[in-house]
Amino acid sequence: MAELAVDRLCVSLGGRQVVRDASWRLRAGELVALLGANGAGKTTVLRAVLGLTPRAAGEVRVGKDDPVRMSPCARARSIAYLPQVRPLAWPVRVRDVVALGRFAYGATPDRLGAADEEALARAVRACDLERFVERPCTTLSGGELARVHVARALAADAPFLLADEPTAALDPLHQHQVMQLLRAGADAGRGVLVVMHDAALAARIADRLLWMADGRIVADGSPEATLTPARLAEVYGVDAVVRRIERDWLISVTGAAAGIADRQ
């Protein structure tokens, strides 16, 4: 299972084409950032890949199988999914939330096998949560809670991980921490796709940038090749100054791109 392959994926919601002809690859060991404006279809792409949203057309392959034809648990064992964070229904312990990452292996928080315990301990250590394991999640800050969810996704030990805006609403330090955790997950051999809005952070950490506008993948490549003022105008509708300083990128938005101001 070295590759997650998406070919000519189309999705319609309420009679509107939300995703058109999206094709991309996610390989083991790489971190890819999916960038695009609100409503560009990023979340829908992830859901359609998993089969949680029905596809109008297109093919997805993990190894030989399409996630749609797998049982929910088999799919969860090959692709971990980290949706946008919603409040938890109950003030459960951090340990129990991370343990739910083992659901697809038949585990429950009160019944973990040896392999589950080991995966749980590894995820907790990787995300630096040892101090919090026995605490109810309600006592954690937003940044700490984000790490708990990443730990849950890592505990699934799936070869691929799709994360939907895991850094939303986090301060710069916690954004950086979460991205480092995902980077480490990719370096450990996973293929990680992360939806995000901070193009500069994405360019610094990701191996590849996948740009989406109006339901289409408009560019797919290294930050050097794809992060340009023209791209930012096309994808976000902004005029921006882009500078590269060694490994780092500076992006300053100077205003709405020509044509966008008139439209709104």
Binding site: L50, L52, S71, P72, C73, R75, A76, R77, A80, Y81, L82, P83, Q84, R86, P87, L88, A89, W90, V92, D96, V97, L100, G101, F103, A104, G106, T108, P109, H149, R152, A156
Partner: peptide
């Protein structure tokens, strides 16, 4: 439904992602 109810603590979207039918 025991196991499913545990996982639904995460919300329906995350529970579905974790393998809940």
């Amino acid at each position: 439904a025991r196991r499913d109810l545990s996982a639904l603590t995460l919300g329906e979207e995350a529970a579905a992602g974790a393998g809940v039918d």
